[in-house]
Nucleic acid binder design. Sequence first.
DNA 1: GAGAAAAGACTGTGATCACAGTGGCTGGTT
DNA 2: AACCAGCCACTGTGATCACAGTCTTTTCTC
Lengths: 223, 223
Amino acid sequence: MEEQVYSELRDRFMSGVFLPGQVLTLRNLAANLGVSPMPVRQAVRCLIVEGALEMLPNRTMQVPRMTRDRLAELLGVRRALEGIATEAACRVITARQIGALEKIHAMSRKAFESGDMRRSLVMNQRFHFTLYESAQSTVLMPIIQGLWLQAGPFMHLALSSTAGMHWDGTHHLELVQALRDGDPAEARQAIERDINKTAEALLVTPHFAAGRAETPERLRARG
Amino acid sequence: MEEQVYSELRDRFMSGVFLPGQVLTLRNLAANLGVSPMPVRQAVRCLIVEGALEMLPNRTMQVPRMTRDRLAELLGVRRALEGIATEAACRVITARQIGALEKIHAMSRKAFESGDMRRSLVMNQRFHFTLYESAQSTVLMPIIQGLWLQAGPFMHLALSSTAGMHWDGTHHLELVQALRDGDPAEARQAIERDINKTAEALLVTPHFAAGRAETPERLRARG
DNA sequence: GAGAAAAGACTGTGATCACAGTGGCTGGTT
DNA sequence: AACCAGCCACTGTGATCACAGTCTTTTCTC
């Protein structure tokens, strides 16, 4: 059951349900999930060691705010690791899997054009993870997931509200082409370009933690 | 208190106290640490999500065995991430910190020459972590620690028993020199060479998980 | 009326108990 | 003697209670 709670919470983090700075409490989460506080305690502990959740000295838990420096670091590590994963994937991916990638990309693009940013983001994430999963690395996959988990709340906050954002899936298409050509180096560069593009979009965003502002309207725990 | 249990268990993993394949139980660990099973449960959960511990379908926990493929993956990711960390460290490290590195290296070398492989390994680990810590990356550091944590039990098993092993700290000295010269690219290459050297030493070792052997003399839980 | 102090409603955390499932040991049967 | 069945010890897990903190709110006093 705890496994269920844990993955449910992970999904919520990656789906933008939680906002940066939001305060979470064990009992609220438990009530919200319809389970006893017990499994939530352990799941939350795991999320803390993964960096998805933060424990203040007050013993209160909140989803961490994002700083520009931290985001730059996260994206740098993403570039390195997802580059490796993409190279590895390129060497073993099947035509059927490439086809699946294209379908996911199409869904992401469609959601984007219809203005459903949330869904577009989720599909974009599924695109990346489907790609890396084909690399079949039990080492890389959890780390990459951890990176997305840490950036999840901020990404959704930053990108789902940016109405006039222009996004083209060019890099995804280039990636698919490189996969078809069996060109790992080019595939890697395509992923790196994609991540760089995401970085550009995120870094100009106004949703970073205020340096000293300490927003007084602290979000209440809604579980 | 749980934090204490958690870091104590981490230390034990990285110090070679636990052997690959060893079965651990909550109550034994708790008794061994002199605490109630409660904090151990959560700490162990965290270790499982970090990949340091494995949960068999039987609901029994064991420290994972190592395969050649997995070790190669771990070292590959280490090369990438510790390379990045080294570059970053090289740009901000102080002369005092470089001096500390040299002292640690000297202790590692001394322990090695006196045959105390265990201590040499621990000091080698401290050398690496001191270096990466100077990079001040709150993103990279936990990931790298996680990688060492996963490889910890196997490394100690493999290297502390290899009596006739020849190890020279050449790459560490090259690294220190590159740090002094403020040459990030060279520092990175030195670290990569060091990791490659470790890889060579580890991959020829006979301590990998037997493909189908399923060692019947399963190690009992000793906490 | 304003400030300070006390009380109350939270928080996470440790301890303990109950329970379902697994493994191995023992004892009886063929 | 070999094999099978039943029993017992032991596993992780969930639930519940108790406790020590912190923060808010209320109330009393100046």
